[in-house]
């Protein structure tokens, strides 16, 4: 069976067009009293300052609130989708993803404990990111160790991941109560995830990490001699890259579930099981999923904004059931 490049290219184009369409509709929808026309002129004013009169409110709303959120959705989607695809490939486990392996929740715990020790988002950003990275690495080492055991069936590994997720979710909840008065709300942020913390700064960090990870992956795939040809070592290094992606995403969006599980499955279904294509394309699928979920989350009971993680769970959990039942029958 040969790789159908045409099919992949077509899928990528469709995904890109979908992203553009979603960005277009996301930027004009929102709770604030900004009309669609206002939003359009606010955008166009940036490029054609002479022709379009900006409205101050619309300008702030679009450029400071909506665009960062939309871009964060895209970047987080890419990074979760790609991380999920890498993990499923590296562990040969169709049920793997940053969320179902518990890595997201361990990162959330590491991050929130750092915040509780007094490092704010403003001053101590690098400390927080560092803590996220370290927790992700620890989680990855645990998962790699468990997966290397002889008794480690995919189900068992994921079950262990999910228990870690519940355990660290509980720990994070308790931490939140020790800390701020807004405890319950904070806990919900870390447990369900949201895109509310978007800012241009955050975007810069995310974009930087994604580019760095992309380079690392390219090196891994195309220059295997750098890492030796031992496939196990390549898979292990890929896991480290995936954990880096997870760390930066969880740091700024909390634990948004199931995007990393869904995206690679959708992707493989369309383009077939070719890891070097599935990984980047899963990123795009992830972006579409997250952007679409966020659009729905913001509009379905407007003006209330649902946590986006709830919607991704709603899509992802049935897939998990399906995968398990299918595997169950096969086994």
């Amino acid at each position: 069976m040969s790789v159908s490049t045409g099919r992949i290219a077509l899928f990528v184009v469709v995904l890109l067009l979908t992203i553009v369409a979603l960005v277009g509709s996301s930027v004009v929808t929102g709770s604030s009293a900004v009309t669609v026309d206002d939003a359009h002129s606010a955008i166009l004013h940036k490029f054609f300052p002479d022709r379009y009169e900006p409205n101050w409110l619309a300008d702030v709303c679009v450029w400071n609130l909506r665009f960062p959120r939309i871009l964060l959705a895209i970047l987080a989607g890419i990074s979760l989708g790609a991380a999920g695809a890498i993990m499923q490939w590296a562990l040969k486990n169709p049920l793997a993803s940053p969320y179902t392996l518990g890595i997201s929740h361990i990162v959330a715990f590491g991050t929130s404990i750092t915040i509780l020790f007094g490092f704010g988002y403003i001053g101590g950003k690098f400390v927080i990111i560092g803590a996220a990275g370290i927790s992700a690495l620890i989680a990855t080492v645990i998962i790699l160790y468990i997966s290397s055991r002889r008794w480690a069936t995919p189900e068992r590994v994921v079950l262990i991941g999910i228990v870690m997720m519940i355990l660290f979710g509980a720990l994070t909840t308790i931490l939140m109560y020790f800390g701020a008065a807004e405890a319950v709300k904070e806990a919900a942020f870390w447990m369900v995830g949201s895109l509310n913390r978007a800012s241009w700064n955050v975007l810069a960090y995310m974009a930087g990490t994604i580019v760095l990870c992309a380079i690392l992956l390219l090196l891994l795939i195309f220059l295997p001699s750098l890492f030796g040809v031992d496939e196990r070592r390549i898979r292990t290094s890929a896991m480290v890259v995936a954990s880096l992606l997870t760390a930066i995403t969880v740091c700024f969006t909390g634990t948004i579930g199931f995007v990393g599980l869904l995206a690679p499955h959708i992707c493989r279904r369309v383009i077939g099981d070719y890891p070097r294509f599935v990984i980047p394309v899963s990123g795009l699928v992830g972006a579409v999923l997250l952007l679409g979920s966020d659009l729905v989350a913001r509009t379905v009971i407007s003006p209330v904004i649902l946590p986006v993680g709830v919607l991704t769970t709603l899509m992802g959990a049935p897939l998990l059931v399906y995968l398990i039942v299918r595997e169950g029958i096969r086994g």
């Binding site: 049920l95 069936t153 189900e155 068992r156 994921v158 079950l159 999910i162 579930g257 199931f258 993680g309 709830v310 919607l311 769970t313 709603l314 992802g316 959990a317 049935p318 998990l320 059931v321 398990i324 039942v325 595997e327 169950g328 029958i329 096969r330 086994g331």
Partner: peptide, 20 residues
Amino acid sequence: GATPETMILAGIAMMYLFGA
């Protein structure tokens, strides 16, 4: 072919679904 693990995984997936 339903192992104890698959049953629980399905249960937990439903837990997340209903939770959401």
